[in-house]
Design a protein around this nucleic acid. Structure first.
Lengths: 240, 240
DNA sequence: CGCGGCAACTGGTTAATACCACTCTATCCA
DNA sequence: TGGATAGAGTGGTATTAACCAGTTGCCGCG
């Protein structure tokens, strides 16, 4: 059965609506949208709240709701090896595929990916290598239906997101990423070529496409001595 | 004056409530809390939603709502002009000032802060404490001219940025932040109450005001078991 | 002609209520 | 004794209905 949540239906409608607009344009008033979409205002507002939280819309009390400032490209970049800025999964990285296979999602992963527990999930584990030195272990899990025909060699070089876009028509749009400190366990240490209990960054990322569908769930571990994350933060200008 | 929003009142109540709990403990059911606090369920749920988004609570359909894994998650807004997510536990942080004093910048720091080497720099080292447990060591360095009259007590609680804005007219606007994996040294371990060589996050931040002047340079170390960073990334909607 | 104030918008908050979906448990029947 | 089942409890979604609080612009009065 389709999820069929009204909130999602409304959010999708708004996403389409926004797509045609330039930054700063107004969307119809909440009450008008309610009538047009046949939903209640709380429901509509819940949908708008989501888009406001992700920065696609901006509310202004007493004036209206507007499409957000032009989206930030690459709001977060990582420095590899210490000196240069590169998007995490772009450029001259190489990968050694350690695991590649389909399996049922199971209850936990099904929840994360918003799938049914029986749906197929592609699980890829790869060792990411820069300048002949292992840098990270990446465990990717994504809906099997999304990438039918994907083979291991596809994931050995190049940008995975570009591949998703150009070959599978998946429009990667946003991600929520969590970074934490950890240390390597025995297996990880061996693969990364560092001592056991070596400092490392654990990164979890959930990625969504333009329709809000979850595209991938990734859990990675990066060598602490060769990877760091730089982000640029912007604060609101409100009067406070 | 207090905002007086019921939602905020409820959120504060829940924060206090959570403070006493160990990770994974259940909170009363939504319906019970409604009765106890005298608010409607939508209002209560709005408050809980906030805490769930910040990771302090976890909902489980059909079972209940539980305190999250015991960690403080700081969400970073990655959208320009978008909403700024304050650290969730804002009001509950305390600080023990370890060092507080003016000194000439010196050559290196002068470069970082864009000052002359002879200019005064205020250096503050503080131990940040959440729920009576040490969480981080923060070494703040900022131009002395910016905060004349600042005393140690000012930095023991509350939001430093709000203080900068309201008392010193400094309009904090953007920051560049770098996160890396590290481990505690002897001193840090003792202050944080963890073993030596314990996993930790090293964070460096350079903060600017609306005019682009550098407001502060901060180097912090956070306990890896109690802190993580969440950011929301947005990619361009452009075709191509 | 200029200015003040009153509508008529806008989003912001809260309420009361209904029903759905999931989890657990206690009970009942085979 | 064991497994199926019904019920009670939980969070999840959606509705209707008010009222509050900023913003804007029109219109009438000075």
């Amino acid at each position: 059965m389709r999820a069929g949540l009204k909130r999602d239906r409304v959010r999708d409608f708004l996403l389409d609506f926004i797509a045609d607009k330039r930054p700063g344009e107004a969307i119809p008033s909440e009450r008008d949208l309610c009538k047009e979409l046949g939903v209640s205002r709380p429901t509509l507002r819940a949908a708008i709240d989501d888009l406001v939280r992700s920065g696609l819309l901006v509310r202004e009390h007493g004036r209206g709701t507007f499409t957000g400032p032009h989206r930030v490209t690459q709001a977060l970049a990582a420095t590899a090896g210490g000196s240069f800025y590169a998007p995490p999964a772009e450029g001259h990285w190489l990968s050694r595929i350690l695991e590649f296979g389909l399996a049922p999602a199971g209850p936990q992963l099904a929840t994360r990916l918003r799938l049914a527990p029986a749906d197929a999930v592609l699980r890829v584990v790869r060792l990411r290598i820069v300048d002949d030195e292992p840098m990270a272990i990446e465990r990717i899990q994504l809906p099997g239906a999304l990438v039918e025909g994907l083979v291991p060699a596809d994931m050995e070089s190049g940008s995975f997101y570009r591949l998703l876009r150009e070959r599978f028509g998946v429009d990667v749009r946003s991600a929520v990423q969590t970074i934490e400190a950890t240390v390597t366990d025995e297996t990880e240490a061996e693969l990364l070529g560092v001592p056991q209990h070596f400092p490392a960054l654990g990164v979890e990322r959930t990625t969504r496409d333009a329709e809000g569908r979850i595209v991938e769930f990734v859990r990675s571990i990066y060598r602490g001595d060769r990877y760091r994350v730089t982000s640029e933060l912007h604060f609101d200008a409100d009067s406070g």
